[in-house]
Each structure stands twice: as structure tokens, then as C-alpha cells.
């Protein structure tokens, strides 16, 4: 348990140490690659100047993620309940993920303006897919023995879905959620590049165009922290809801 926790931490610390030493040793200019200490100092001293950007991004991410989650689940459940529809729409679902967001983003602005709509659409687009695919797979992989039992016991289709298939798919849904949670932060930052007045994406664009590389790294640092935070929340929820799996391994 202790090694499991310390192993990744020490790897990160070693990388930061090498980075710090080489930045000083090779005298790399700050606008190319600032040393970790410089980034850290900037992160601490300018906190009042940029903190509102972070909260704006958190807001946007949560909105987008919740919408993406709902849409992903609705799509998955609909396609599961109507197999013909699944056959018809599954390829379309996959193709939706082949559209480069960078290309799509400006188009969405043309169609929907600079408001919150195109931003939410981008987050939804990156979020719904992992959830939908994981849920569809989870529902499809329901143990046939249990389905057979439910049918013999006289369960209706609705009962089979609610009492058996949905709880059976829960672990899969959570794997989808974990991927989406991290994607949603990226989606939010990208959507902010489109033209927002606040958010980490805005802060990042401003920083890079004025060669404040240290601030770019501060932005990256906070994106990572947010990703880990959302990931952690999902894992916490998973542990709360799926107790049986852990016990089952004993």
C-alpha cells in the first residue's frame, strides 16, 4: 500500500529534480523552459490574479460533464433497448469521434455564437462517447445465466433492465466515467480557446502569446490538478456504490 502510493510520487519528484537541475545547469532562458521553482513561485505569487480563471473552468467542466453524462447514458440505454437502432447508429457514434475538435470548434462558434452553447457542445462531444460505449458494452455483457433465470422467474423486460442489466453495467459505466472526467477538463480548456473572457484556456492563450512560459506551465499544472480531482471524485463515488466487487475478491 505504501509503495503503491510512494512509487509514482518519487518518480514525479525525480523528474522535477532533473528538470530543475538541467534548467540551471544549461542556463535555459525562462521563456523557453522555466525551472519548476520559477513556475511554483509564479503559481503562488499570482494566485489572486488568475484564480477566477480556474473557478470559471471548473464551472464549465461540471456543466459539460453532467450534460455529457446524461446524453451518453440516454444514448446507451436507447440503443441497448432497441437493437435495430444500435446497428443503425453505432457507426455514426464512432464517426462523431473522428471529427477533429480543433476544426469543429470554429464552426460551432459560427453556428452558435460566442455564448456558452458551443463550449458546452465541445465538452459534451468529448464526454458522451466513452460513457456511451462503456455503458452499451456493460449492458450487453450481462451474464446470460442471470438473464435466463430472470425470464424463468417471470420478470418483465423492464424488471430485467432495472434489476439486472443496469446494476450489472455499473462497473463498466464507471470505467467510462473515469475517462470522460479527465477528457472533460481538456474539452473545457479547448472550448475556452474559442473566445471566452475567462477560464484556464483564456489564461493559457494570453500567457503563451506574451511569452510568459511560466504562466503556461501554471495553467498546465492546474489542468492536471483538476483532472486528478475529477478522477478522484469518480473513484470515490465508485467505491461508495460498488461495494460488492471488492468484497468478492476476498
Amino acid at each position: 500500500m505504501i509503495t503503491k502510493f510512494w512509487l509514482p510520487i518519487s518518480v514525479i519528484l525525480i523528474i522535477i529534480l532533473i528538470w530543475e537541475l538541467s534548467a540551471t545547469f544549461f542556463a535555459i532562458p525562462d521563456w523557453i523552459l522555466p525551472a519548476p521553482t520559477v513556475i511554483f513561485a509564479e503559481a503562488v505569487s499570482s494566485w489572486p490574479n488568475y484564480q477566477h480563471h480556474i473557478f470559471a473552468t471548473i464551472h464549465l467542466t461540471i456543466y459539460g460533464f453532467v450534460l455529457g453524462l446524461m446524453i451518453g447514458l440516454i444514448i446507451a440505454i436507447t440503443l441497448h433497448l432497441i437493437p435495430r437502432l444500435r446497428e443503425a447508429l453505432y457507426p455514426l457514434l464512432i464517426m462523431s469521434q473522428n471529427i477533429p475538435i480543433i476544426v469543429l470548434a470554429p464552426l460551432l462558434v459560427i453556428w452558435f455564437g460566442f455564448g456558452i452553447t458551443p463550449k458546452l457542445l465541445i465538452i459534451i462531444l468529448v464526454c458522451f462517447f466513452p460513457i456511451a460505449v462503456a455503458t452499451i458494452d456493460g449492458l450487453k455483457q450481462t451474464n446470460p445465466e442471470l438473464i435466463h433465470y430472470m425470464k424463468m422467474a417471470g420478470a418483465t423486460k423492464k424488471q430485467i433492465f432495472i434489476k439486472l442489466e443496469l446494476p450489472h453495467a455499473l462497473p463498466s459505466i464507471f470505467s467510462g466515467l473515469k475517462i470522460s472526467a479527465t477528457y472533460s477538463v481538456m474539452g473545457a480548456v479547448i472550448s475556452e480557446w474559442l473566445g471566452a473572457n475567462q477560464g484556464i484556456g483564456v489564461y493559457m492563450t494570453l500567457a503563451s502569446s506574451s511569452f510568459r512560459t511560466d504562466r503556461v506551465f501554471v495553467a498546465i499544472l492546474f489542468i492536471m490538478i483538476l483532472c486528478l480531482l475529477f478522477f478522484g471524485i469518480i473513484i470515490g463515488l465508485e467505491k461508495m456504490l460498488i461495494k460488492w466487487r471488492k468484497d468478492g475478491n476476498e
Binding site: 445465466e145 442471470l146 435466463h148 433465470y149 425470464k151 424463468m152 422467474a153 417471470g154 420478470a155 434489476k163 439486472l164 446494476p167 450489472h168 455499473l170 460498488i242 460488492w244 466487487r245 468478492g248
Partner: peptide, 18 residues
Amino acid sequence: QKGSISYMPQSPSLFPWR
């Protein structure tokens, strides 16, 4: 007609999350 008898299958078919 479904559901007229009570049934016990070959495998216990218990739900792991219950």
C-alpha cells in the same frame, strides 16, 4: 405464460451485487 412457476436453475444465479 411466464412467471407461473418458481424456478431454481442449475447454477445458483445469485446477483453478485445483492
